[in-house]
Design a protein around this nucleic acid. Structure first.
Lengths: 324, 324
DNA sequence: CTGAAAGCGCTTACAG
DNA sequence: CTGAAAGCGCTTACAG
């Protein structure tokens, strides 16, 4: 019927009599007619929905505001473009990549997906617009579109900061549960490289694999062998270290400097306030979402690459190493 | 075609020859056939999707982990039941309630929706399963299904705690931007009632309307007229107060006790750790989601009511009032 | 200028 | 036991 033309403003090139249109509108109102979006989606083969795929299920928790910021950025950008946002956890992913390409999404934003490369390959092969939100150096395939952050730059800034303060023996802390996560190792690697470039030596950087709650701190500290600064691969790890240090009566930063990654406003709540490498997560997420929607609309297949610079938020948890 | 029977396990009462089935499966694999969920949704008139409607857009931010916990609970419960979660902001709501009932959702979870009662009425009238996640005392219509928290109980616990510590003059702080939010006033009202029931008098409770960042603290403190404790209607407000107090060299809790609502693990990060009334947000959200899905599946129309008890997390920010 | 018909990709009731 | 057909509610190309 031409009802659709009147009610949804479709078919601009199709005209309808004014009184016919009026009748249609009146009847529609009387019957409380509501267009069914599923039918429209089927017909038009688009859903105005983007999917968010995460690698880990317990996303929103942890001692960090990372995912809050991320969600804020994504929803803000998506809503303003008339797109809805649907959440997928990894269950949908690895177990059944088909469900991602079953027509429900116009595009996918892959958040810190690092495992399950196969499912990524599938998505790309299926011509489902896909954008990775990931560390730039983890994206190896140049045909992949991504928005990345500069872990290398962040690690360099942390290394330069500590080195210039005079530290000559530092520990890089990786959470036990995160060793499957390449990002922790990537940051450790970049940090070590940068340290060498600062003029330090290899044996001045020790890699420590600790429980997420940093319970290892107590045993480690008395045997720290001259280490004067700890770098945690994550913000939440650094916060745990601060708590343990306080419990052990270790003064930060007088006795020990502590630095984290992924600085959020949580770092202002800790005591002392945490020095940390920062990514503008919300801004990045908004940009990523805009890019993805642009990919959906345009048909050119040039992969999109974009790297956000990092910066170092110097707060209160770092200082010159203790004199002895 | 009977292809559907083979591939999706539909039509159990319909049999197909074993070799026919095999052929179908082989060809499907060759062609990388993927069932289209939109078509299926159209046909079956269900989408296995629940919508999350919020009242305010800047949801995930703020100095609180409230929405993170909420999202964790919702996604966990939804995914385990095979449901997807779609995010809606208020733009979809007030501006166009039709979009909520356009067939995309099997049910809606209304999170702290307090304004826009009209849109709620619409949803209920349209037979779209709807569950409110709200303060119990804010839900006036008994035919409305809701999962609520016990603001009244929380306010009582806070009042009893302060009164029994010996405080006899307290301020209840409401953030300026939240006076449109009935919940702040509800809590203030419950607190005052409970205070009276404890044996206190009306003039012992002062209502303070401050900026969200508690910048009013500095001017207020010197003229506090004997107030020895501040209760903030929200966790983030209480955290702001702690920060201002520290900036003004006011000792908490020695000089002044501070209490908040909606305790999350953030309260353990503040200095001193914040005493606060707690809601089990994640658990509540999971329960709400389960209930909603049950409502979708069953057809009985009895409204569901459920109130979670509150509890008081006594940490370090409250003590006896200062001697003078 | 307007109405009737085809088709999006499924599912299921029905005919053979 | 299996295949062909109708229909979910839209949109749009087509016929009148």
């Amino acid at each position: 019927m031409s009802v659709s033309k009147v009610l949804h403003g479709r078919g601009v090139n199709v005209r309808i009599g004014a009184e016919t249109a009026e009748t249609i509108r009146r009847v529609a109102k009387e019957l409380e007619y509501r267009p069914n979006v599923i039918a429209r989606n089927l017909r038009s083969k688009q859903t105005n929905t983007i999917g968010l795929v995460f690698d880990e299920t317990p996303l929103f928790g942890g001692t960090t505001r990372y995912f809050s910021d991320l969600m804020n950025g994504v929803t803000r950008a998506a809503f303003s473009e008339g797109y809805s946002v649907m959440l997928c956890d990894s269950l949908i992913g690895p177990k059944d990549s088909n469900r991602l390409s079953d027509g429900r999404f116009d595009g996918l934003l892959w958040v810190r997906m690092t495992a399950g490369q196969q499912i990524l390959q599938d998505a790309f092969r299926l011509n489902l617009p896909s954008l990775l939100f990931a560390d730039a150096s983890l994206v190896t395939d140049p045909s992949t579109s991504f928005i990345g952050w500069d872990n290398q730059g962040a690690a360099r800034q942390v290394a330069e900061h500590l080195y210039s303060l005079g530290h000559r023996k530092v520990g890089f802390v990786i959470a036990e549960h995160s060793i499957v996560n390449p990002e922790a190792r990537v940051r450790a690697g970049h940090f070590r490289e940068s340290w060498l470039r600062c003029g330090g030596s290899n044996d001045q950087v020790e890699t420590l694999i600790w429980a997420a709650n940093a319970s290892d701190f107590e045993d480690w500290y008395p045997n720290r062998k001259g280490v004067t600064a700890l770098v945690s691969w994550s913000e939440s790890g650094a916060i745990s270290i601060l708590e343990r240090a306080r419990a052990c009566n270790v003064q930060v930063p007088a006795d020990l400097s502590v630095v984290g990654f992924d600085s959020s406003s949580l770092c202002d709540l800790t005591q002392p306030k945490l020095t940390a490498a920062r990514q503008p997560v919300e801004e990045m997420a908004a940009k990523a979402t805009e890019f993805l929607i642009r990919m959906i609309h345009s048909s050119d297949t040039d992969p999109l690459h974009f790297v956000f610079p990092s910066s170092l938020d110097i707060r209160e948890s770092t200082a010159r190493p203790p004199q002895r």
